[in-house]
C-alpha cells in the first residue's frame, strides 16, 4: 500500500471533484500550457505572426468550465482564446495550424490567433474587439432559450472589457429578458498594461451586475476545485432559472498582454510570486500526489503524452499547405463565391 503524505494545503471549498476529474483537468491545463509554450517558441521563430495573446497562468478557469459544462452549451470569448477552443474540443493541431496560417487551421487560415472558431463544438470565437463578444454571447443565450434547448451560454470577458459600454447593454438585456448566460470575467489584473485599480472605479467586478439585479461571485481563479464548484453552482442557477450570473475569476497571466509586451508595468517579483506560490497547475498536481497518490510515473506519462500531442501538432503544421490562392475571395458571402 502506498503511503500518502498529506500536504498542508488549504482546500478553499469542500470539493466534489473526484480523481478522474482532477486528472482530466490536469491534462487539459498542462496541454494548454505546453501548447502555448510551443506557440511562444514558434512566434520567436517567425512561424506565428501578428497578435498572439497567451493564456498561460489562467488555465484552471477553462479547465473547470470544461468539467462543469454540458456538451452542447455554447462558449464565446475574446482574443485570448487558444485555451478556450482546445477546451471546447478542437484538436490542438487544428489550432496550431490556424496560428501558423495553414489551410488546415480551424478557421482555414483566415482567422489567426484571435479568431478561432469551432461551430461544431459550439465555440463561437475568438473576437478581436474588447467587449464585442459580450452582446454576441448574450444573443447566443437568447437563441438557446428561443429554441427551449436547455443549453446555456458561457460568455467570457476580461477585466478590461468591464469598462466597455456594450457589456452593460448586454447585462441589461440578459436580466430584462431572463437569458441563460453565465458571464465569466477573467480578471488577470491588467487590461494590457493598465491595472484594474487604474482603469476601474469600483474594482469588485463581480458586483458590476448589481444595478441590473444580476448576482455575482468572486472566485479564486487559480484553484481548480474552487472554480469548478462556483461554475457548477452558477451554471445550475443560470440553467434552472433562466437568469444571468456573473463570476469574477481572480487570476493572473504570466506572459505579457501579447507577444510584443515586455510587461514593464509590473515587477518580476509579482509574477514570480504567482508562478511559485499560486500556479494553478502545481495546485492540481499537489492534490493528485497528496490526496490521490498519483505516482511520479503517472505524471511523467501524462507529460509524455502531451509532448507527443504537441509534436504531432507541429508535424501536422509543417506538412500542411498554406491556403490556396483561390481561397482569397471565398467565404465572404454564403453562396456567392
Amino acid at each position: 500500500m502506498l503511503f500518502c503524505i498529506k500536504k498542508n494545503w488549504e482546500m478553499s471549498v469542500n470539493s466534489n471533484l473526484v480523481e478522474d476529474q482532477y486528472i482530466a483537468a490536469y491534462k487539459d491545463m498542462l496541454l494548454i500550457r505546453r501548447f502555448e509554450e510551443k506557440c511562444s517558441q514558434l512566434y520567436g521563430m517567425g512561424e506565428i505572426a501578428g497578435f498572439c495573446h497567451l493564456y498561460i497562468g489562467q488555465e484552471a478557469i477553462i479547465a473547470a468550465v470544461k468539467l462543469a459544462k454540458k456538451e452542447n452549451d455554447c462558449m464565446i470569448t475574446s482574443y485570448r482564446d487558444h485555451g478556450h477552443i482546445i477546451a471546447a474540443g478542437t484538436e490542438p493541431k487544428y489550432v496550431l495550424a490556424e496560428l501558423t496560417g495553414k489551410s488546415t487551421g480551424c478557421s482555414a487560415g483566415k482567422g489567426g490567433s484571435m479568431h478561432m472558431f469551432d461551430v461544431k463544438n459550439k465555440f463561437y470565437g475568438g473576437h478581436g474587439v474588447v467587449g464585442a463578444q459580450v452582446p454576441i454571447g448574450t444573443g447566443l443565450a437568447f437563441a438557446e432559450k428561443y429554441r427551449n434547448s436547455g443549453y446555456i451560454s458561457y460568455t467570457f470577458l476580461g477585466d478590461g472589457a468591464v469598462n466597455q459600454g456594450q457589456v452593460y447593454e448586454s447585462f441589461n438585456m440578459a436580466a430584462l429578458w431572463k437569458l441563460p448566460v453565465l458571464y465569466i470575467i477573467e480578471n488577470n489584473e491588467y487590461s494590457m498594461g493598465t491595472s484594474v485599480c487604474r482603469s476601474t472605479s469600483m474594482t469588485e467586478l463581480y458586483k458590476k451586475g448589481e444595478s441590473f439585479g444580476i448576482k455575482g461571485k468572486r472566485v479564486n481563479g487559480m484553484k481548480l476545485d474552487e472554480i469548478y464548484e462556483a461554475i457548477s453552482d452558477a451554471s445550475n442557477y443560470v440553467r434552472l432559472n433562466n437568469q444571468p450570473f456573473i463570476l469574477e475569476m481572480k487570476t493572473y497571466r504570466y506572459r505579457g498582454h501579447s507577444m510584443s509586451d515586455p510587461a514593464k508595468y509590473r515587477t518580476k517579483e509579482e509574477v514570480d510570486d504567482y508562478k511559485n506560490h499560486n500556479d494553478p497547475i502545481n495546485y492540481v498536481k499537489d492534490i493528485l500526489v497528496s490526496k490521490f497518490c498519483v505516482s511520479d510515473e503517472e505524471l511523467k506519462a501524462i507529460e509524455k503524452d502531451i509532448k507527443f500531442t504537441i509534436q504531432e501538432a507541429v508535424n501536422f503544421c509543417e506538412s500542411s499547405p498554406v491556403p490556396d490562392e483561390s481561397e482569397l475571395k471565398t467565404q465572404i458571402y454564403v453562396g456567392l463565391n
Binding site: P135, G139, L140, Y146, E169, M173
Partner: peptide
C-alpha cells in the same frame, strides 16, 4: 450597440 451584437449572436 447591444441589441445589434445580441441579434448577431442569435444569427
Amino acid at each position: 450597440h447591444g441589441f445589434t451584437g445580441f441579434a448577431i449572436g442569435a444569427a
